Simulated scan of single mutants.
Amino acid sequence: MDLIKKHIAYADPHIRPIIDQLRSKILQLNGRIVEGATPQQRITYSEQRIFAEVKVQKKLVVVRIFDTGDTDPSGMLQHIEYAAKQGWQHDKELRLDNMLMLDDAMRFVEASLHFSRNVLPGYSARAKHLVRYSPPSTPRRS
Rank of each mutant, 00 (worst) to 15 (best):
M1G: 11
K6N: 01
H7C: 02
A9P: 03
D12M: 02
D12K: 02
D12A: 09
I15H: 01
R16Q: 14
I18P: 10
D20I: 11
R23Y: 01
S24R: 13
S24A: 12
K25R: 15
I26H: 03
L27F: 00
N30E: 09
R32G: 13
T38R: 12
T38M: 09
Q40M: 09
R42S: 13
R42G: 12
T44Q: 07
Y45H: 08
S46K: 15
S46N: 11
R49H: 09
R49T: 15
I50S: 11
I50A: 08
I50T: 15
A52H: 06
E53C: 15
V54N: 08
Q57P: 03
K59S: 04
V61Q: 03
I65Y: 00
F66W: 05
T71A: 13
D72E: 08
P73E: 07
S74M: 09
S74N: 11
S74L: 13
G75H: 08
M76G: 09
M76H: 05
Q78E: 14
H79M: 12
I80R: 04
E81L: 12
Y82R: 13
Y82S: 15
A84D: 13
A84V: 13
Q86C: 06
G87D: 08
Q89S: 14
Q89C: 13
H90T: 10
E93L: 08
L94F: 01
R95N: 11
M99N: 09
L100N: 14
M101I: 03
D104V: 08
D104K: 07
A105Y: 02
V109P: 00
E110A: 15
S116G: 13
N118P: 10
N118V: 11
S124C: 07
A125S: 11
A127I: 11
H129K: 15
L130F: 08
L130I: 07
R132M: 11
Y133Q: 15
P135V: 04
P139N: 04
